[in-house]
Design a protein around this nucleic acid. Structure first.
Length: 449
DNA sequence: TCTGGGGTCCTAGGACCC
DNA sequence: TCTGGGGTCCTAGGACCC
């Protein structure tokens, strides 16, 4: 490797006038995204503490800066934070995914218009990696600020931007930008080795992208506490101690050697899951079957959207544990799966085996708090669709699905569904504090009087 | 009775991300 | 009393084959 860089240097001195082509990666990350979305339609909340809850109003998944300041913890259970929230008059919202999804699309579309779609990798609902156009190092900061201001002006959502030679360093830069928004103007650029050293020395190992709870503990026990200390470990050490090639990539990225490529957009998913907590514990098998049928319908929609079919369906249910001393995340999960005779994307062909699996899993007398459906073994739908040798009804099924998808998409709220999904929904999740779907429903639009 | 080595495919499980 | 949902990638180890 050092041979290569020596070579590159030599080439450069030979051709003084040929500029070195530098490619920089940026991560653009919406600030407190869900809270910002809620505030957009509630300007009265602009400087007030706001939090958004997860599905089922379970934990806190987004906090405004003001909420962070008064000590509301991220991912903490809502009921524990409630006293603090009431004391400080914090505005509380249930998740409103219609709203966030739509605003996310606007932010990403702005980036695509600025940089070209092929240079934007949507990484999550509120983050995107972008390949910056070639420019002088001095211009990078200005360009990053330009991105930030344009998005804010066009969508009303404020973002932070981190720029560096690799994705991992860009994430580190972004972390620093957010640490001190006022000083950084929400933008941080780490191009020079000296800038990178200072930044990595100030970042604790647990805040590094790619180091989760398990590795953080392990590293701290080994005496490695800062990102800089980790950067200076050898790749052999990383292979042995940080999950093989993943660890090697992490170290190299920290040193400025790009190892994590930009991903193709519209990549076809390899697995599709729909899982939910129940609004309250359920002990009745028919309710569980209704829920599983509903989740299967949702998963099948996702499957058809990417034009895939599945040959394996797994179902799991999670009993409500009796012993509250155990860590709730690691409650027992009971699961099983079926391999289908042929891959399919037809909802009712998936619901039937899914519901049968519930019979295998369910134990009478127990109550359950969660269930989920996973589809895997995905293949392109074209591989199975429109077969001349299957009965005509089977081809018609696919058209039926198209019709259902279209109607459900335009009417929303699952106007058409299968009877197995039930009508009582005793298991349905709680969403007591949801705001209006301002940007996706006519009847919920923002009104100006 | 003696009884190798290398390859592939699959699954379970562990780590991570937001 | 009350603690989210949806993904990815990687490795180890077993089954099977020649």
């Amino acid at each position: 490797m050092s041979d290569l860089s020596a070579l590159a240097g030599a080439t450069n001195t030979l051709f003084e006038n040929v500029p070195v082509r530098k490619s920089f990666k940026a991560i653009v990350d919406c600030n407190n995204f869900y809270c910002s979305c809620e505030r957009l339609f509630r300007p009265d909340l602009k400087y007030k503490p706001v939090v958004v809850l997860s599905n089922n109003d379970g934990c806190i998944v987004s906090r405004s800066d003001e909420a962070k300041t008064i000590g509301v913890e991220m991912a903490g259970p809502y009921f524990k934070a409630k006293p603090l929230i009431q004391k400080h008059d914090v505005a509380v919202f249930s998740s409103n995914y219609n709203l966030y999804g739509d605003l996310s699309w606007r932010v990403m579309e702005t980036l695509r218009m600025m940089l070209g779609a092929s240079n934007v990798e949507v990484y999550s609902v509120d983050e995107a990696f972008v390949d910056l156009p070639e420019m002088d190092e001095k211009e990078v900061l200005d360009y990053a600020l330009h991105i930030r201001y344009t998005i804010e002006q066009w969508t009303g959502i404020s973002v932070s931007v981190g720029v560096a030679p690799t994705k991992t360093l860009a994430k580190a830069a972004n972390y620093m930008a957010k640490e001190n928004k006022r000083a950084s103007n929400c933008v941080k650029v780490l191009l020079l080795p000296e800038q990178q050293r200072q930044a990595l020395q100030s970042i604790r190992i647990s805040n590094l992208w790619g180091v989760g709870g398990a590795y953080a503990n392990k590293l701290i026990n080994m005496g490695i506490t800062s990102a800089w200390e980790l950067r200076n470990m050898s790749v052999e050490w990383a292979y042995k101690n940080l999950g093989g090639v993943t660890g090697v990539r992490l170290i190299k990225e920290l040193r400025g050697e790009p190892c994590i490529d930009m991903k193709e957009q519209l990549a076809i998913k390899k697995m599709i899951a729909t899982t939910r907590m129940f609004g309250s514990p359920v002990n009745n098998i028919s309710d569980i079957k209704e829920a599983v049928a509903t989740y299967t319908s949702r998963a099948a929609e996702k499957l058809r959207r990417q034009r895939s079919a599945a040959n394996t369906i797994s179902v799991f249910i999670v009993p409500k544990e009796q012993d509250h001393s155990v860590d709730f995340h690691h409650g027992p999960t009971i699961s099983t799966y079926t391999i289908l005779p042929a891959a399919t994307s037809i909802t009712h062909e998936l619901i039937k085996p899914a519901v049968q699996l519930v019979d295998q899993l369910y134990e009478a007398g127990k109550s359950y708090k969660k269930a989920g459906v996973m589809l895997s073994g995905l293949v392109p739908e074209t591989a199975i669709q429109g077969n001349l040798f299957v009965p005509e009804t089977q081809n018609r099924n696919r058209y039926l699905m198209d019709m259902m998808d279209n109607i459900n998409f335009s009417m929303r709220d699952d106007i058409l569904k299968f009877a197995a999904s039930g009508t009582h929904k005793n298991w349905k999740m709680r969403q007591e504090l949801r705001s209006r779907r301002y940007t996706t429903r006519w009847e919920e639009m923002f009104e100006v009087k």
